[in-house]
Computed example of a mutant assay.
Amino acid sequence: MEFLVNNHNIDENRLQPYGVGPLAPQATNETEEGRQQNRRVELVKP
């Protein structure tokens, strides 16, 4: 979010950061490979 605000002049009031990795994993968190897949950033347009 900080990158988008500082480098692309996007109004921070338009952005809402949520940490959903633990709530919506794409892979198992039981292996390092799975944890790497779950470290991600997603941009969702409402």
Rank of each mutant, 00 (worst) to 15 (best):
Q37A: 13
N38E: 05
G19Q: 10
V44M: 05
R14I: 02
V41E: 03
Q16N: 11
L43D: 05
L23M: 12
N29V: 07
Q37G: 07
N29I: 07
L4Q: 06
R14V: 04
Q36T: 06
M1R: 02
P46A: 15
P17T: 00
M1K: 00
P46Q: 12
V44A: 06
N9R: 00
L15E: 08
P46K: 11
V5Q: 03
L43Q: 04
N9G: 12
P22W: 05
L4S: 09
E33Q: 14
P22N: 15
P17L: 13
F3C: 04
E42T: 09
G19M: 08
V41W: 02
F3T: 03
Y18Q: 15
N38R: 09
N38S: 01
R35P: 08
E32H: 09
R40A: 00
M1E: 14
K45E: 04
Y18G: 06
N9T: 05
A27M: 04
Q37L: 14
E30N: 02
P17D: 03
L23E: 08
I10K: 01
N7D: 06
R35S: 14
K45H: 02
V44N: 05
L4R: 01
Q26W: 08
E33L: 09
F3K: 15
G19I: 15
I10A: 06
R39D: 11
